[in-house]
């Protein structure tokens, strides 16, 4: 038996928003520790890794490990039926071929349940090695989203260049060239508005704009985003999810032919 209760179901709506542009379907692996998802986009260029710890939920029970293959378009249809303040309960029997979503209004006067068919997906788990990154940039997630949106008007690729002084995002194309430089913030009132850089050595890498823009669909999950970079390895874009865990996106760099 699997059962997870979430008082504010808006978190799951935001998670879904953060993954559905990259993935058509995904397997939610449920265990005693929580819910995990790892999936590559169809072109095998980026990977989404989601971790929601069981202790973040208001109630969580998972007697046996359960892998739920879910069509994300179907799940989106169901989650649209929930109010942001509804209490959500997800339930599945062991070895079930369906999962139930139950939404209760705060005053408990409206209760809806939706049963969704599960699908069989070929699971492809990737081992992600522990990496010491040369540069770790923390910045407001809204600022990162804005930069990716602005630069995508100029070219298909964004060059991210990180030094001790700051981080520079550049794009170039038919229109011309664009450069956005962010310096480390000296002092800010709010931690979430800070730009901080931990640098071992400077790094410059090129990435496809389209994917960075898809990652920014997670902006609503966290006020800050963390970018981890090392030469010739995938970029990690991480958004913390409150008391639950995180969503991480890995994106392979573009390299010279």
């Amino acid at each position: 038996m699997f059962e997870a209760r979430l008082v504010q179901c808006s978190m799951l709506k935001k998670v879904l928003e953060a993954i559905k542009e990259l993935l058509n379907e995904a397997t939610f692996d449920c265990s005693d520790a929580g819910i995990q998802l790892q999936a590559m986009d169809n072109s095998h260029v980026s990977l989404v890794s989601l971790n929601l710890r069981s202790d973040g939920f208001d109630k969580y029970r998972c007697d046996r490990n359960l892998s739920m293959g879910i069509n994300l378009a179907s799940m989106t249809k169901i989650m649209k039926c929930a109010g942001n303040d509804d209490v959500l309960t997800i339930k599945a029997q062991d070895n079930a071929d369906n999962v139930m979503f139950m939404f209760e209004s705060q005053n408990q006067e409206k209760v809806s349940d939706y049963d969704m068919k599960l699908i069989n997906l070929d699971q492809e788990h990737l081992g992600i090695p522990e990496t010491d990154y040369s540069c770790i940039i923390k910045m407001p997630s809204g600022e990162f989203a804005r930069i990716c949106r602005d630069l995508s008007q100029f070219g298909e690729s964004v060059v991210i260049s990180c030094t001790k002084e700051g981080v520079k995002f550049s794009a170039a194309g038919d229109v011309g060239a664009a450069n956005i430089k962010l310096a480390q913030t000296a002092n800010v009132d709010k931690e979430e508005e800070a730009v901080t850089i931990e640098m071992q050595e400077p790094v410059t890498l090129t990435f496809a704009c389209r994917y960075l823009n898809s990652f920014t669909k997670a902006t609503a999950l966290s006020p800050q985003v963390q970018l981890s970079m090392s030469a010739d390895v995938p970029l990690v874009v991480e958004y913390k999810i409150g008391d639950f865990g995180h969503i991480r996106y890995y994106l392979a760099p573009k390299i010279e032919e």
Binding site: H44, H125, P129, P253, K254
Partner: peptide, 14 residues
């Protein structure tokens, strides 16, 4: 010219 890398080259299938 730039070539887009694939992730599978960086991570191992387990």
């Amino acid at each position: 010219a730039l070539r887009q890398c694939l992730l599978t080259g960086f991570f191992m299938n387990i």
